[in-house]
């Protein structure tokens, strides 16, 4: 009697399962006594009820380490992804001041989508006096430009006397 191997996706945090151990002498599923390679994830024989599996070969192949994960290869791959992201995405984005001007940049586009891409108010932006003074500077055709969190006062242009 030996402990049954859990599927690769099972964390083992749940309660003990009564059928957690099986007799290794019990026969294989295939009539010919062999193992169905498409039904195993790491080259070992799983028994009992069918489990969700991953098909295809892993980078380590069937000769992977005993725990089924090639950590060195995974780390190397992750490092390459970080290097690629730094070189192709973050470095160009560092020169972008206004995300709206760089729709081709993944970071800028994401910032715009989540609503944090609005640049801060700069000194050269037009300002409307809340009391209406200077409102004549706002062109009627374009209308006031809305600002987040601030009331945009509407210019009151003339007095109309109705009969």
């Amino acid at each position: 009697m030996t402990a049954r191997r859990q599927p690769w996706w099972f964390s083992g945090d749940d309660a003990e399962q009564p059928d957690a151990v099986v007799d290794e002498d019990s026969g294989p599923d295939r009539p010919d006594g062999g193992l169905d390679e498409d039904s195993v994830s790491d080259g070992s024989a799983d028994q009992g009820e069918p489990e969700p599996v991953v098909t295809g070969s892993r980078p380590g192949g069937d000769d992977a380490s005993s725990n089924g994960i090639e950590w060195t290869a995974l780390l190397a791959g992750a490092q390459r992804m970080v290097d690629w992201a730094t070189e192709k995405v973050l470095a160009p984005h560092a020169e972008h001041t206004d995300p709206a001007d760089h729709p081709q940049c993944v970071v800028c586009r994401t910032m715009v989508l989540i609503g944090e891409g609005r640049s801060l108010v700069t000194d050269d932006e037009p300002v409307t006096d809340p009391q209406g003074a200077g409102a004549e500077d706002v062109e009627a055709e374009s209308g006031p430009v809305p600002a987040t969190g601030e009331i945009m006062w509407i210019p009151i242009r003339e007095q109309v006397r109705e009969p």
């Binding site: 209308g143 006031p144 509407i154 003339e158 109309v160 006397r161 109705e162």
Partner: peptide, 18 residues
């Protein structure tokens, strides 16, 4: 719509939107 302008009338304010 965008609020473009407002005018005063004897009954209050009239705001235009495009």
């Amino acid at each position: 719509c965008r609020a473009t302008s407002a005018v005063r009338t004897e009954a209050g304010l009239r705001v235009s939107f495009v």
